[in-house]
Amino acid sequence: MSFEPKILGILCNWCAYAGGDLAGVSRIQYPPNMKVVRVMCTGRVDPEFVIEGFLVGCDGIWVGG
């Protein structure tokens, strides 16, 4: 089996998360590797979250905002 990265998305409620919603509404298809944590602003993202993500085995982290 090919490598399937585990990607964590930490997305801003007002833009990137909304963009995810719009992708859904528009039925844009993309790979299912990313799972999303919603925050109210990417300013909320503590470096600790990113470190924790890598520590517990994420292969990539996307902070979207």
Partner: peptide
Amino acid sequence: TMGRFTNEQIIAQIDAFS
């Protein structure tokens, strides 16, 4: 800390993902 978005809550989500 932030109401409904505490460090513990967000970390718990990240841990649960892994």
